[in-house]
Amino acid sequence: MSTNSFPLRSRLRTVTDHAVTGLTILATVVVVTPLVAIFAYLVYKGASSLNLAFFTQIPKPVGVAGGGMANAIVGSAILLAIASAIGVPIGIGGGVFLAEFGRGTKLANAVRFTADVLNGVPSIVMGLAIYALIVIPQKHFSALSGGVALGIMMIPTVCRTTEEMLMMVPHAVREAALGLGVPNWRSVLSITVKTASPGIITGCMLAFARVAGETAPLLFTALGNDFWSSSLNQPIAALPLQIYVYALSPYDDWHRLAWAGSLVLIVLIVLAVSLVRYVTSRGVLKGAS
């Protein structure tokens, strides 16, 4: 029985193989195209309207050219500060529990599972819950409620990245610390968490960048504001909210401001994502995330 009578590599099979290769390459191109298109369009539209006034002035009334989003940038910064104050410590704490204390226990598995599920809960639902919890009793929209909504959204992300980063720390490091008689809490804080800290910090930045672009939970918590406001008890402007309102407005001036705002947001996010990749591609944390 020679191979010639059984053509193992028939023409059809080879053609199919090549066709599929072509299709997957096509799919990749189709997927990368919108990304490139979005970026190119943002840079094209945003760069032309990005100037100093954008960062220093508050919006001008309709019909008056110029103006900026300074109040929205400051508002976003305040909201994100509140969010980080809530999300980062609790998230890191949860991650430390998962990686250091609860490995393999039922509780840890349940927490991990719930965190992953919570990560997929629509952000608008978070906004609704915080509206019911804080805005209804207070009877007015406030910066505080917006910050809390964003903070709660940060917790699961920070928690899971912290856990992943801590898992990358070699056991020998922990054993060395404990072998010297260092108490466990000190070993966790000064040895394990410190070793993983570049990863944890960038993980927090990633969560930060994600909630920086969140609009839905702010719609009925922070509400938005056309003027300066730094009170936590007042409605406050936020960059993504302002982009949403201006994008749907009929005025070209406002569209330009919205494009510039989008560009600023995107640059922030690209920086965060690149940083995470840079950190996880070297040192002890190689391969994490």
Partner: peptide
């Protein structure tokens, strides 16, 4: 990395781009 970036773009910017 590029597909990861696609996941990180805020939804409001997708909407904005989609609209225009």
């Amino acid at each position: 990395f590029l597909t990861e970036l696609l996941a990180a773009i805020p939804s409001v910017i997708y909407g904005f781009w989609g609209f225009f």
